[in-house]
């Protein structure tokens, strides 16, 4: 069967099964415990206790199977070793020790830290700048659309776009990458940007900053608009200049939102894979954790070390996870 047809069929079956399940299980509950008759009161109570779980079951099952169980299973795999011929044996911390002895792993950790230092900060600052500036001009909405646009572009697409920007031809030839063209026009020598050790990381980061700035701008722009006018009016009456208004009145009031943007971008950075995979595949000292893990899992086929590196990513995400959960609970109470 053609995959497209199979897809259509899956949509139809998927939706029918969903509707069938919700409709059927609710009907069944109402038949078993009818809200009328001599025991109506007790039946209603029982039905009200069960019904939320009927509504929740498919989602909770999928979440449990596809996200919660893998965390535990990956942790287990990271402590085991596959033996030839099938089966697993307990390996303790061997995988972690093996990983710690690989220079590529430390390269990935250091690069990831660099990414963490640079990308969330730059994306937030540019986003804040764009939000503040575009709010004041007539064509601000068009400008916002353009800055926001890279959000829709895949990491792979963005990698192609930026590879053309960074393209390098030998000196003396006509440059077709715009970055080298500018450098040559200013009297410099063309460089193969993606192979310069250490600095090439920053050229990869630029791609993610380019993508994430729009996200930061949209969220921060909404927050800036939500600032009560009176606070700004009061500052103006007191003779504050625009810089002071921005840094001393506006920014402190949207600190919470800035943190949200920062942490969201941080999570994306920790998982960054496609850009590095497509542009350098971790060569020339650009390895990052997610790509290191991919290489371990699907190239070297070492599931133990691969799982161990996935756990490292999880551990790095953990503080943000805890912070998010605490905030969400605070907000609900």
């Amino acid at each position: 069967m053609a995959p497209a047809l199979q897809g259509l069929l899956t949509i139809v079956i998927g939706i029918s099964v969903c509707i069938g399940y919700f409709l059927g299980s609710n009907l069944l509950l109402d038949t078993l415990f009818p809200p009328r008759g001599p025991r109506a009161g007790r039946n209603i109570n029982i039905a009200n206790m069960v019904r939320p779980w009927l509504f929740l079951f498919p989602a909770m099952f999928a979440l449990g199977l596809y996200l919660a169980y893998p965390v535990v299973e990956t942790l287990r795999l990271s402590l085991t070793e596959r033996v030839p011929g099938g089966g697993y044996v307990w390996a303790g911390l061997d995988n972690y020790i093996q990983m710690a002895n690989e220079p590529k792993f430390w390269e990935a950790i250091i690069n990831n830290m660099l990414w963490l230092l640079v990308v969330p900060g730059l994306a937030t600052v540019f986003g804040l700048l764009a939000a503040q500036l575009t709010d004041r001009i007539k064509w601000g909405n068009i400008a916002k659309s353009i800055i926001f646009m890279p959000m829709a572009i895949s990491f792979v697409g963005a990698s192609v776009i930026w590879k053309l920007v960074y393209d390098a031809r030998p000196a003396g030839q006509e440059q077709i990458g715009i970055l080298n063209a500018i450098v040559v026009a200013l009297g410099g020598q063309p460089e193969t940007w993606l192979t310069i050790p250490f600095w090439n990381n920053f050229f990869l980061m630029a791609v993610l900053v380019w993508i994430q700035t729009g996200f930061a701008m949209v969220i921060l722009s909404a927050a800036l608009r939500g600032i009560p006018e009176e606070t700004i009016e009061a500052a103006i009456v007191d003779g504050a200049n625009p810089m002071q208004i921005f840094f001393k009145i506006k920014v402190p009031q949207i600190k919470g939102t800035i943190m949200v943007v920062w942490t969201t971008t941080t999570i994306i950075v920790l998982k960054i894979f496609d850009i590095v995979f497509a542009m350098t595949n971790g060569q020339w000292g650009t390895q990052v954790l997610a790509n290191y893990m991919y290489a371990k899992l699907f190239v070297a086929r070492d599931w133990g070390v691969g799982s161990a590196s996935a756990i490292v990513i999880m551990v790095l995400v953990l503080p943000i996870l805890v912070w998010n959960v605490r905030n969400a609970r605070k907000e609900m109470n």
């Binding site: 979440l63 990956t74 999570i267 609970r329």
Partner: peptide, 21 residues
Amino acid sequence: ALLIAGVVALLVVPLQLALIP
């Protein structure tokens, strides 16, 4: 409340962990 907290937590779990299992 616990389930909602669980959903918020799963929001940031890297899908890299889910690949092999």
